[in-house]
Nucleic acid binder design. Structure first.
Lengths: 207, 207
DNA sequence: CAGGTTTTCGCCTTTCGGTCGAAAACGTGG
DNA sequence: CCACGTTTTCGACCGAAAGGCGAAAACCTG
């Protein structure tokens, strides 16, 4: 989500939301406050620090050190945004201001990595979804196609997926109606990565 | 590596090395400069940003926003340090200043996670090592025992390990002399994590 | 040379991930 | 109402990865 700068520097270029750190807040409170001016922050399903960007010349004029965050919203949310603000596909960004394109690339890389070895998928998915919808989400976020069969098995084995019992309405071209799933409650915050080199005799999975 | 504060605030408590950001440097250059006052920074095998700590009351007096880094040195290095500075086991930290204990815990957690799904092990190991020495390193960093057999197999399969041909001198109680290994050159920087949910038909491993 | 110690290696089992194709469950059009 | 296309689901198979175990190897000491 970018907004188009009206004034110099970098007028007309697109910019990440953000702003100065207030005296009574930490950086996460600050970014949530900045975002609240753009969207309904209650729709944020996940927020995490990305990195500090501090090159002396990253912005013209006085030195500005930025703490970049990754904020995710479920794919079904279409928040109302101000007129200068729109969503852009991360693969086709417009001309961006300052180092914001590099920040976006880092964020995209972080997302792709964490999708694979954590339960972060919950943050991208709507409350209920079909496996093929989830497959599309993962494929888009990872940048390559994944198998629906395998995706379902891997997430299920990790104890993340749960069938709702309902089925989705069928599409215009027919086909078997898809079962609806949700991420299990209690796994809606990011947890430990799924590690290799486990402790010996760890028969603790799936719970 | 902590140094003991001589003056208030938090006199006599132990503190992470660090300091202010200079006008002509980014945060990584800054932390390397700060560390250079304590140790030989050429021994640093890996440096990465950890997180920003920015609670308004994290230090008394004017607000200080800190960008914390993780810096690793190989286990065989014993750098000369100033008289106020010593190494401490991360499981038994002394009384620390400010929020530095929380920072250490986060760093420890980050290290344990990354050891598992990246090639970060190279940063902890000396240039040459035996498998059991490496096993000790991994066990200490992860906080639980790992199998030497499995560790060697996993790292070998990832193409990270290479035998030197030499063997280590035997210990006082005898036993078969251990073969020496090294991390393969070219893998001495952190690379992409080893991901699950791979793209279809990716026959690209081991190279 | 017997006994103790440590490392190494091969074998086995389990788990995991990837692939494929058949079957199921819908529409639609003759 | 039946043949056909479409989409989803599921089971089966396979290879790769990881964990576990014990025998063998290679050293010491007495």
């Amino acid at each position: 989500m970018l907004w188009q700068r009206a004034r110099e520097p970098h007028a007309h270029r697109w910019s990440l939301p953000g702003g100065g750190l207030g005296p009574e807040e930490d950086v996460e409170a600050s970014i949530r406050r900045q975002l609240a001016e753009k969207v309904d922050v209650r729709q944020l399903s996940h927020v995490e620090q990305l990195a500090v960007f501090s090159a002396p010349d990253r912005v013209p004029g006085p030195r500005v050190v930025a703490t970049a965050f990754v904020g995710l919203v479920p794919s079904d949310t279409d928040p109302v945004v101000p007129s200068d603000t729109t969503w852009h596909p991360v693969d086709a960004l417009p001309a961006t201001a300052f180092d914001h394109e590099a920040i976006c690339r880092r964020a995209r890389s972080r997302l792709a990595s964490k999708l694979s070895y954590t339960n972060l998928g919950f943050a991208l998915a709507p409350p209920e979804f079909t496996i093929s919808a989830l497959r599309s989400l993962y494929s888009a976020a990872l940048g390559y196609e994944v198998s629906a069969t395998n995706l379902q098995r891997v997430l299920s084995r990790r104890g993340l997926l749960e069938p709702t019992g309902a089925v989705a309405p069928v599409g215009p071209s027919g086909g078997r109606p898809a079962a609806l799933f949700r991420f299990v409650a209690g796994r809606l915050r990011i947890t430990d990565p799924f590690a290799v080199l486990r402790p010996p005799s760890s028969r603790n999975l799936g719970t």
